[in-house]
Write a protein that binds this DNA or RNA. Structure first.
Length: 443
RNA sequence: GGAGGAGUGGCCGAGCGGCUGAAGGCGACGGUCUUGAAAACCGUUAGGCGCGAAAGCGUCUCGGGGGUUCGAAUCCCUCCUCCUCCGCCA
């Protein structure tokens, strides 16, 4: 969410920012509604002030023990005078009351519309984000590692995993429908190994590991920016008005929502391993093969909450990107980093770096990580604030990035580490989590 | 799931229809004192929105929402959360 004052003063820029992001919102209507909202508030406050004042007056007029009453009598007023005065004031109030009611009746829907419109205004992208319509226009920043060539016919992860008996997509689909799978034996082990490696590396880097709820209240989804626009992507538990999260970013970022932190508490660095639920609505027919686009996966996510300073935010953005790259380097996987273009940025993101890892079966780099910078966007929605040395209250800045998401990352791991005989060499960094073994050989 | 009890400022805790955005205490911050510190003493210490160039002013908020009333932290309804007991269960 943006500051309404900022929107008022920069309407043109906000409009353009939405166009760049290919997000529809109605800035003109918002400004109109905001104007009406303020007019109503001013009128209402005058009346409310009067009600308050008159109400107190009546209290005094009706209480013979009040200092005011005693003084009035001493000044020569009669009880009848005072009673008449009380009646007069009450009559005045009786006239104001319907006016307030009328204004309030108008204000209700105005406020409602104002809030709805506000939730749809996107955060303008950083000038450093390339202008573009979709992911095809993301800009490569750097490539790390060599894309290997094979001296045999390499298998894709599904064939490889199925033959090794470590991936069972057919039965996953039998149980849960399309985009579901089962990992088995060394498949399950490998999955947990990459997650453990990622988490251990983050803890080593000073991030506090958290175990968080993945079924959250609606306001948490709104607060992090996933609702209302992303509602169709979430699994809802409507009986309880809760949603399954698509990422631990949601509970981690909302952890301090509705709080005022001390500046000395910042930065807050956290990570969490959690299941992630995604409906993938609208993706029908896209990436249907294998473990790339699935409804449930596990992920270690990193979140940073820092002070409201653009340079600080930028520095942490580089840090969380570096954290993820360190994991990819530990796994010795070839990847590239791309600067995501405006059209591919979400509602709240100012700038986003994706890490894409080489996936032989796709014959291309596929997205495995997404590092986002939000400035105040989420913090405003979440009421996530801190007090500075001068006791002034500010919204925090928030950032997040994947550390590892599995089984998607198992696609490059399996495909790149496969051998001619159909076995898979276990990356050195994962061996401690795989009983020290060097290979997956299947049954 | 059933039966009770409770939700007040950073924390503890008074208030139970008007002068209470809220006593008192603790904590924190500033000051006096001190070589420094402690103690003691004095002071400051909610957020949102709006108006205003600013100083400042107004209004809303005592878990959330609604109602009664001239007037509500205080009364009523409803939802949420927590606690206790019973039941069920990993």
């Amino acid at each position: 969410m943006l500051d309404i004052k900022f929107i008022r003063d920069n309407a043109e820029a906000v409009r353009k920012a939405a166009v760049d992001k290919h997000i529809k919102c109605d800035v003109d209507r918002l400004i109109e509604v905001d104007k009406r909202r303020r007019e109503l508030q001013v009128q209402l406050e005058v009346f409310r002030g009067q009600v308050k004042e008159d109400g107190q007056k009546i209290g005094l007029l009706r209480n013979p023990k009040s200092p005011w009453y005693v003084k009035a009598i001493a000044d020569g007023k009669t009880e009848a005078d005072i009673k008449a005065e009380a009646a007069r004031v009450q009559a005045e109030l009786a006239e104001i009351k319907p006016k307030i009611k009328q204004l309030e009746d108008e204000e209700g829907p105005v406020l409602e519309e104002f809030e709805q419109l506000m939730l749809l205004i996107p955060q303008p992208a950083d000038p450093a984000a390339p202008l573009g319509k979709d992911d095809t226009e993301n800009v490569e920043i750097r490539k790390v590692g060599e894309v290997p060539t094979f001296d045999f016919e390499p298998k894709d992860h599904v064939k490889l995993g199925t033959e090794l008996g470590i991936i069972d997509i057919e039965r996953g689909v039998k149980l849960s429908g399309s985009r579901n799978y089962i990992l088995k034996g060394d498949g399950a082990m490998l999955h947990q190994a990459v997650l453990r490696l990622a988490q251990d590396m983050m803890v080593e880097r000073g991030y506090v590991p958290m175990q968080v709820p993945v079924l959250v209240r609606e306001e948490v989804m709104y607060g992090t920016g996933y609702f209302p626009t992303g509602r169709d992507q979430a699994y809802l538990c409507e009986r309880d008005d809760k949603s399954l999260v698509g990422t631990a970013e949601v509970p981690l970022t909302a952890y301090h929502s509705d709080e005022i932190l001390k500046e000395s508490d910042l930065p807050i660095k956290m990570c969490a391993m959690s299941p992630c639920f995604r409906r993938e609505a609208g993706a029908a027919g896209k990436d249907t093969y294998g473990l790339y686009r699935i409804h449930l996966f596990d992920k270690v996510e990193q979140v940073v909450i820092c002070k409201n300073d653009i340079e600080t935010s930028k520095a942490f953005h580089e840090e969380i990107l570096a954290n993820a790259e360190a994991v990819m380097q530990a796994l010795e996987l070839p990847y590239r980093v791309v600067n995501v273009c405006t059209g591919d940025l979400g509602m709240g993101q100012v700038l986003k770096y994706d890490i894409e890892t080489w996936m032989p079966s796709r014959d291309s780099y596929g997205e495995t990580h997404s590092a986002s910078r939000f400035y105040e966007f989420q913090a405003r929605r979440l009421k996530l604030r801190y007090r500075d040395g001068a006791k002034k209250v500010h919204y925090c800045h928030t950032l997040n990035n994947t550390v590892i998401a599995s089984p998607r990352v198992l696609i490059p791991v399996l495909e790149l580490y496969q051998n001619a005989d159909g076995t898979v060499t276990i990356p050195t960094a994962l061996r401690p989590y795989m009983g020290g073994r060097e290979r997956i050989e299947g049954q």
